[in-house]
């Protein structure tokens, strides 16, 4: 590699920006700890306003190799490939991205690839922005259509239990699964 090529690595990250106070980093920490406790060592993400604190912690965590993808359907394919390579993988993305990913999710179902999808902006509870209308309209219907098991978080306290059980489902049934994260879980009022 030539001297001027810039390859992404944890040691090359930019100076951290100040953490926004409206995010619940304690909850994000519990989420990432649960992923790690349950064997997730590889993650893919594309930035999102709700999942931002989880994404920050993933990028900073030396125990989880994290890739920022160029679009989330690509990211799901990357996560599926990493799963085939023996890594338990998760992808963190805005709910809209499930709408971009119908085909690759269908492929993951048919080829029986366990992959954990963490997506924001479900249509349940507290989603207030009008401009997320299409996002809300697409997330759950696509998962329903493909019969991908998912759980909508309602209480931060349930995170360790839900992650443990959903990974059990994912590995046992060899299927993609999803955790949908409404804004109030990670963003304070």
């Amino acid at each position: 590699m030539s001297a001027n090529a810039k390859t992404d690595s944890p040691t090359q990250s930019r100076p951290a920006t100040k953490r926004a106070s409206h995010f619940r980093y304690d909850v994000a920490g519990s989420f990432v700890d649960s992923l790690k406790t349950n064997g997730v060592t590889y993650s893919v993400l594309l930035p999102d306003s709700v999942l931002h604190p989880i994404n920050e912690l993933l990028l900073a965590d030396a125990d989880v190799q994290t890739v920022v993808c160029s679009r989330e359907d690509e990211g799901i394919a990357i996560a599926v490939g990493a799963g085939w390579g023996g890594r338990r993988s998760a992808i963190s993305m805005e709910g809209s991205a499930i709408g971009m990913s119908g085909l690759i999710l269908a492929r993951a179902v048919i080829q029986r690839s366990p992959t954990l999808i963490i997506a924001s902006h479900s249509s349940v509870l507290g989603e207030k922005f009008g401009y997320h209308a299409a996002t809300r309209a697409v997330t759950q219907p696509v998962l329903d259509a493909l019969r991908i098991p998912y759980h909508v978080l309602r209480d931060p306290e349930e995170i360790p239990h839900v992650i443990k059980q959903i990974i059990r489902t994912m590995e046992g049934q060899k299927t993609p699964v999803a955790i949908l994260v409404p804004p109030f879980i990670l963003v304070s009022d």
């Binding site: 394919a77 990357i78 490939g81 085939w84 390579g85 690759i104 492929r107």
Partner: peptide
């Protein structure tokens, strides 16, 4: 016969894991 845009990203994840 991977679906059209996904052979390369799937290989990328596999390559990183292996």
């Amino acid at each position: 016969n991977m679906e059209m845009p996904y052979a390369t990203p799937m290989c990328m994840g596999l390559a990183m894991a292996r």
